[in-house]
Simulated assay, not measured.
Amino acid sequence: MFARPLSSVLLAAAAFLAPLHAAWSQPQPQMNLQRVELHAGMYNIDAQVAVTPQEQEIGLMFRQEMPQQEGMLFMFRQPSTQCFWMKNTVLPLTAAFVADDGRIVNLVDMKPQTLDSHCSEEPVRFVLEMNQGWFAKKSIKKGFKLVGAPFGSK
C-alpha cells in the first residue's frame, strides 16, 4: 500500500478547493426578489422590489444585463431625500425618484461604476431604476404618474 504524507494530501486538497472558494465568494446579483407590476401609460414594468436595507444596498450591483421591461423599485419607510450611486453596477441606469402618488419627481441618468451621488429633488419613498434611456424613449418625463399597488393605484 502506498501512503502519502498528510501534508501533501492537504496541499492537494487546498489546490483543488481554492478555485471553488474564489467562485463561491464572488459577489452575485440578487435575482429572487419579490416583484410588482407597474404601469407607465401603456407600458408595463416588471419591477423587482428592494425593501430591506441589504436588498437596497445591493440593488442592481453585479447584474450584467436586464430586460428592457424590467427594473428595480426601492421602497423606503419614510419620505426623505434619497441619493443613489453606482458602485459595482455595470449597467447604465436611469433613476426615477417617485412620490407616494406615483408622480415622477425627477429623473437622473447614472454612469456605471461611479461613486457620483444622484439625489431626489424632494423627499420621496420610491426610486425606480430602469435601463438608461428607457424613460426617454417612451417620452416619460418629470411629472408623469406611474400606476401600481405601491402608489395606491392599479
Rank of each mutant, 00 (worst) to 15 (best):
R125Y: 06
I45P: 07
F2L: 14
L91C: 08
W134K: 02
L20S: 07
F16K: 00
E122L: 10
E129T: 06
F76L: 10
L73D: 03
M110V: 05
A3N: 04
R35P: 02
K137F: 00
P79R: 01
C83Q: 07
K87S: 07
Q132S: 10
K145A: 13
A12T: 09
N106C: 05
S117D: 07
T89S: 08
P67G: 02
H118Y: 13
P67W: 02
K87F: 07
L128F: 02
Q30P: 05
L33Q: 09
V127E: 06
Q54M: 11
D100E: 10
M130K: 08
A15C: 13
Q34L: 14
P150R: 00
M130F: 02
K154E: 14
R4G: 06
L60D: 13
C119W: 05
F84A: 04
T94C: 00
V90N: 13
M86Q: 01
N88Y: 06
T81Y: 09
R4N: 11
A149H: 08
S139Q: 10
E122A: 12
V105S: 13
Q56Y: 03
A40V: 03
T114G: 06
F126G: 02
V90W: 10
S7G: 07
Q54T: 08
D46H: 12
R4H: 12
I45F: 12
S25Y: 13
I45E: 14
F144V: 01
S25L: 15
M1K: 13
F97I: 04
V147I: 10
A149Q: 07
V98L: 02
A12K: 03
K142N: 12
E122T: 04
S117V: 10
Q34R: 09
V105E: 10
I45V: 15
D46Q: 14
V36E: 09
A22D: 11
D101G: 07
M31C: 08
I45S: 05
H39Q: 15
G71V: 04
P27S: 07
D46R: 07
